[in-house]
Every structure is written in C-alpha cells, then in structure tokens.
Nucleic acid binder design. Sequence first.
DNA 1: ACGTGTCGTTAACACGTTATAGTGAGTGCC
DNA 2: GGCACTCACTATAACGTGTTAACGACACGT
Lengths: 333, 333
Amino acid sequence: MAPRSRRVTSADVARDAGVSRATVSFVLNNTAHQKITDATRQRVLAAAAKLGYAPSPAARTLRYGRSDVVLGLLPDWPLGHAVGNLIQELTLAFAKRNLTFVVHSSVRGARSLSDIWKALTPAAVLAFEPFTDSDAAAMRSAGIEVIVALYDSSGLGAEASITSANAIGAAQARHLAASHRRLGYVYPDDERVAVFARPRLDGVRSVCAELGLPEPDVRTIPLTPDAAASTIRTWLAADPPVTGICAFNDEFAMTVLAGLRKLGLEAPRDMAVIGVDDSPAAALACPPLTTVVEDLPAVAELYADTVMRALDGPEASASPVEPRIRLEVRESA
Amino acid sequence: MAPRSRRVTSADVARDAGVSRATVSFVLNNTAHQKITDATRQRVLAAAAKLGYAPSPAARTLRYGRSDVVLGLLPDWPLGHAVGNLIQELTLAFAKRNLTFVVHSSVRGARSLSDIWKALTPAAVLAFEPFTDSDAAAMRSAGIEVIVALYDSSGLGAEASITSANAIGAAQARHLAASHRRLGYVYPDDERVAVFARPRLDGVRSVCAELGLPEPDVRTIPLTPDAAASTIRTWLAADPPVTGICAFNDEFAMTVLAGLRKLGLEAPRDMAVIGVDDSPAAALACPPLTTVVEDLPAVAELYADTVMRALDGPEASASPVEPRIRLEVRESA
DNA sequence: ACGTGTCGTTAACACGTTATAGTGAGTGCC
DNA sequence: GGCACTCACTATAACGTGTTAACGACACGT
C-alpha cells in the first residue's frame, strides 16, 4: 500500500532523461515539425516507460479546451438488455474514432444535470431525451461543442429518430397484417419511455392506413398477466376481433403471452403477438416470441458519425442512413 | 448557432463585477475564513448568473489533483437487467456522497484500459473483474487513489465479495433442500462471468455439505432449450434423481423451464428450478420463476462507503455489512 | 571573417482554477 | 502620531500540459 503516491509528471521524465520538459512532450506526441535525435528520443521513451508516465488528462483538457470524452446521458427508466447492447456498440463505435464513450445514469434524485457535465468537460453530450433550452444554453456557454438529442423531434438527432423508431412499428405491423385483419397495440404504462413508444406506434398506424386496415386498438397495460388477460378478453370480444398484437417491447409481449396462458388460450392460434428487442428471454418464452430487432452496430455507427461531423465542424450536414431492421420470426406470430 | 462560443471564465465574471478573480472564487466556493461584503457578494453572484458562468472541471481537477468522478468499469459480457439496476443504484449512492459515477463499457476491441482512465482522471475506479498487476500499478502512479475490484478474491473488495455472492447460492440451495434430496447446478457457458458464477456455486456446495446432501451435480449448458432438455433427461435418470435445480441466473433458469416444456414435463412437479436476479421476464415465465434477488440499494451503499473510506484515508478499515438477500417465491420451486 | 541557414533543444507562456501571502484602508488604544 | 490589529480584498504561485519563440552550436557559401 503506497502511502500517497505522488503523480509522475513529464518533469520527472525530463529529469530522468536529462532533457527539458518540452523535449519530452515533443517525443511523446510525435510533433511533426520538430526534429529530435534518435538517441534522445530513445532516452526519453525509456525514461517514460521506466517511470510509468501517463499524461494528466485534466491538464491536457485544460490546454486543449476540449477532452476526448463523449458523455452518454441515460434516462431514469429501467435499463434493459437493449440499452446495454446499445451502450456496448456505442463504446465500440466511438473508440474507433478515438473518443472515449462514458455513460451516466441520470436517475431521479441524483445530481442535477449541470453538476454532471460540469464534472466532466465532455466534448459532446449524447442523450435519449431532449434537453431543456436553459440546459442546452448552459452547455454551449460551458464550451461543450455538440449537443445531440437522440430521438428528438428537432435538431441534429431528428433524422436518426424518424428512420429507426418508426420502422420498428412498421415491421411489426407488416408481419401481422399478412394473416390478421385487426391489430392491437400494447402501449407501456410508463410515460417516461414515450420517446420510444410514440414513434413505434406511429409506425404501426401508418402501415395500417397504408394497407387499408382499421386503426390499431391501443391499450395501456401494466406488466401483470391479470391486466393482460382482461385486455385480451376485450380484444377478442370486439367486432371484428383484434387478433394481431404489437407490443412495445418483449416484456410487454411476454405479459400478453402470460395473459393468454391464464385464459387457457394459445399463441398464435387464438392471438398472435410480436415484440421488440430480441431480449434473451424472448427465445425462451412459451411459445418462443417473434420479435423485431434493430441492427445496433449500424445505429451506433450512425450516432458516432453524427457526433464526429458536429465536432469537426458544423458546416457538414448529415447523411441519413436507414438503420436496418430485422424480423426474428419464432412461434408467437 | 453560436459559431464557436468562447468559454466563460471566472476572469469574465470578475471583470463584470469589478473585482479580482480571487474574490470570485471566494464567493462562489463560500470560503470559510474569508469575509466578503454582502454588497460585493451579490454583485459577483449576479454577474456569474448573468454570464452563465460554470467553472471548468478540468482546471479544478488539475488544481485539486483529484476529480470527483468515480469510474465504473463494466465487463464485456452482455449487460442485463441486474447490471442496469446496479448502475442506477450506484449512481444514486455516489451522488449522495457528492461523487459523479460514470460507467465505461470495456468491450473487447475497444480502447485499452489505460486509454480509458487516462482520459478521465477519476478519483477511484470500480471494476467487476480484478486488474492485472501492471494496470493497478499504472493507475497508482497516475495518481488514482483507490482501486476497488468488486468480487475480487483479494484486496479491498474481498469482504464484499464473500458476503453477497456466496449468500445467493446458499439461499437457492436452502430453499430447494426443504423438499429435494439431490440438487443440480446450471453453470453458465460463458467463462467471462465466472467471477459471479464460482462464488454462487460455492454457496450451493457449502449448504449441501452443511445439510448432509450429496454434492450438487454441476452442468454447463448453453442458452438453448434443446441442450437443457438433454441435461434434464440425464438428471432425472440419475440415482437418486436430481430434482432441484439452482441456475446461475434467470435466463439459465428459463432455459431449463423451456427444456422441461419440450419434454412434456412440468415445474415444480417433475423438477424445481430457481433463478437469480428477478428480471422482469421471471414473473412472466411459465410457470412464474422463483428467484433470488439482492438488495441492490444496500449493495450500492456498501460499495460507495468502501470507496469513500479509501478516498478519505487508507487507515480506516472496512466494516463489512452483510447485504440482504431476498427470496421471491413464485411457482417454479 | 561574416552573414545565413538548419538542427536540436529549451525557456517561457497560456489554459482556468484554488489557496496563501500580502496590501492598503480604516479603527481603537496609548 | 505611532502601533497593533481587523477588514475586505488583491496579487501571485502553483497544478501539468502543449506550443511558440528564441537560442546556442554548427555547417556552408562568399
């Protein structure tokens, strides 16, 4: 246990190598227009390695006025499998671009938003929900270059939003419409996920209109089999009966499956159900759940590119790439 | 769109308020032993608010030599519901202590470990897996004060490890032992989660020994119903048959349930299954899954306290608090 | 010998903050 | 008036980095 190990600075390396701090900096950063003798270069490199020198990111950030950190702001709703995967893909995508992606969960009751980015000096902030105007203004005046709100209806994230979220609902509806004349939608009972839920529902709606089907029957239910059962009864009693169900995600889809079992019914014979996310549990449900899954690596690349463009300069405009949607067809629909 | 908005510094505030930079600092930090006239204090506050001043965290960190950021290093295995919750609880726990908890997913192929903490100057690093000696040494020489490896078998995290992880397996075994004479264990097929799996299995083993039951029958299976089915056949054919199954987590437990369905068998009549995590899908499985769930807020508090103690000074020793384990009894066992 | 370059290196500054030492004005005391 | 002392504030030194301008040494051409 080192008592309170002092930091190794570039001055230490310089002293050890018998050169000045500037020379150390030139060597370690490979400054282009600076000639350094091979002998001293090796001496500096050896000293740095010996002492285990690592430049202070704080000093570096202070000097450059910008760090290479991209801060991802997670909303406070429960983080499932999908978000976990997206985080990993984003980390990978930003790493490819020499940026460090870091995530903060903005759970309610924790530090205020300003405290968070005040503690980090990120180069960019990436969020799932739109910022308030004052927050956005504050960030800009704090020198944070980019503010991208995913799934926001305005600003940089807009094009990304429309493509992916609507397409998910659309894919659900198209698959069900092949064999069902009336569709239902399970809307989440947590208003906080509306940023995702609304566009997905819109996708279902527009496909119904396009194919000449009646409006989808939208119900908001909690994650309990009993609630699902009573909703299912209503659906089947309608005229014409609602037999194809698009769920907001796999959890709500599995709730419908549980409701069906409770009523002694069976999917897809009595009612077809389709989810979103392809969570690990989806393949293990009974019956195995048909689900829609986004190409997360592609989505991550899209966001990373958007951030890079904004960092390099505001003049380059976005080139919206349609993220690919895949249908994992199992037995429930 | 501001072209490239310059940062607002304390010098700007000072100029606007007609005082020196030092005075601004005194006012904004409420320096105790410094008397400031109420008039000037208000003037400074007003100027800061007007200009939207936010101190530069980089400069602050450089000055203090330590930031208020705690970096959580996530392993590269798939992040499920449990990890998501733990992150939220940790964020909350650290926020209570005026620390900013931030997470980086160390996905394979991304930046190397050194690049990550080099980019952040965290006050402490919290990881699920033990560090290599060279990494640990490098961090210390970079001035990072605390390095806590959760679930590590040595060092600061040790006491936390034993308590929680072993207790989970023990709780599973105790519940099953009430009505089953021979237990089986579903070990994950992903070696990366061994840090969790091993202690849990140890908990099951020690309870079996304590109660005079034979050694648990450990099997490693992938997350496919077919694999589970063939393992189930072997278990039931054994003499005496293995009828109580502890699974590494809910997903593996649900795989066993799926295997049972495939064989036309039923839980808990033919075989009892118990999982870990109480993921949302557990309550929706058929039959609803009995599962062990940790008191995540308590665990988060424990870790936060450990970090705080290490930050305040290395002399204070740990006071291990046994995190509470709860059994969510449903129908599968 | 003397300007003219090039080469390798270094002194010095700036980034924005906090803390320590100090400064000038005012006040009380003898 | 001189001294001590508080008061409200300011000048300045770090923290560790990257970079610009300068500088000595040396070679070269005339």
